[in-house]
Simulated assay, not measured.
Amino acid sequence: MSTPHKPILKRYQTESERPGYVEDLFDRGAPYYDVIGKIGFLGSGHAYRKRALQLAGLKPGMRLIDVACGTGAVTRPGVEIVGDEGSVVAVDPSSGMMAEAKKTIDADFRRGRAEELPVEDNEFDFLSMGYALRHVSDLVLAFKEYLRVLKPGGKALILEISRPKTKVGMALAKLYFRDIIPAMSKVVTGSEDAEEMFAYYWETIEACVPPEDILAALKEAGFKNVERRPIMSIFSEYHAEKP
């Protein structure tokens, strides 16, 4: 099994407990996710995600699947890009997160996991995943599933946060993601669920395998033209294409 990180022992003890913990956590934290995301990233997320999708090849009229859609941070710009001639399927294991997304986004929402997508083979032109790769149970298994649902020549864009390699970068990341964001979440929302959700956010970043392992897993799954584009040393864009 190619896991993105070992079990976070303060949250759950075994790999088999991970899906249930993550689903419950995001169900509880869903009402607060968007407001903290907008404050924490100064409202810049939508424009960046839309531009990243366009540069990766998403175009009007395409059929898009957004995996681990959450509250729709990537789904929303995806819908805008493909337009009325295209279509978007958004998949997530958390009914709470999808309930928030459905309030403002017109897409086909389906409950499911990255490792077992509830769609047919060779159905999509483009696959996206935004900052959720750390929560899958098996990287290669998930990537093989991505390959299955894409049409030949279809493209995948995976956005993720990577652990900084320099001491200064790591210190700054810890300060912001480990200390500031969870504390701010509790202050702004008054919710311990929101605080736990964003504390876990950093814990998975810190424990996650390096980008080289993710690139290797994409290649092992069968993707071609696999590459990583680092942004500001902490954000990663993984690009891949189905043969």
Rank of each mutant, 00 (worst) to 15 (best):
P210R: 14
P31M: 08
P230K: 03
A173Q: 04
M62S: 09
S185Q: 06
R18Q: 15
G130D: 10
R134Q: 06
E192G: 08
E15C: 06
E80H: 03
E123A: 13
E100F: 05
D27G: 05
D92Y: 08
T14A: 12
G190K: 05
I234F: 15
D213K: 15
S16T: 09
G169P: 06
A56R: 01
G153C: 10
I39Y: 10
S162K: 10
L9V: 10
Y33P: 01
E212R: 15
R163I: 05
S94Q: 11
A199R: 12
M129C: 14
H239S: 08
K144F: 03
R113W: 11
K151S: 06
A47E: 13
S94L: 08
M98S: 07
P182N: 02
M62Q: 14
P4T: 03
V67Y: 07
R148V: 06
P243F: 11
K151T: 02
K6W: 03
G154W: 01
R113E: 11
E206C: 01
T3L: 15
Q13T: 12
D193R: 02
V22W: 01
V74H: 01
R178M: 04
L172F: 14
G154P: 02
F41A: 15
L215Q: 04
I65M: 01
P93N: 11
I214F: 10
I214R: 07
P182R: 00
G20F: 10
A30Y: 02
K155F: 00
G153I: 06
L58M: 07
L55G: 06
E23N: 13
S2W: 14
A132F: 08
D125E: 05
A173K: 01
L215C: 06
V89F: 00
K174T: 14
T104Q: 13
K103F: 07
D106P: 09
E206K: 03
T189K: 02
P31Q: 07
D108T: 13
D193V: 11
K10W: 03
K144A: 05
I158W: 01
L133M: 13
Y131H: 06
M184L: 15
L141Y: 11
L53D: 03
G70D: 04
S95M: 14
E145S: 02
A183V: 13
S236G: 14
G154V: 02
D34N: 15
Y176F: 10
L172R: 11
L175V: 03
Y131S: 03
E195S: 04
Q13E: 14
P164V: 01
G37D: 12
K224E: 14
K186N: 04
W202C: 04
G37H: 10
L172W: 09
M97H: 08
L127I: 01
Y201E: 12
V188D: 00
E212V: 14
L157E: 02
P4D: 01
A30V: 07
E80F: 04
V79L: 08
A68V: 10
M1T: 15
D121F: 04
P19I: 07
S44A: 14
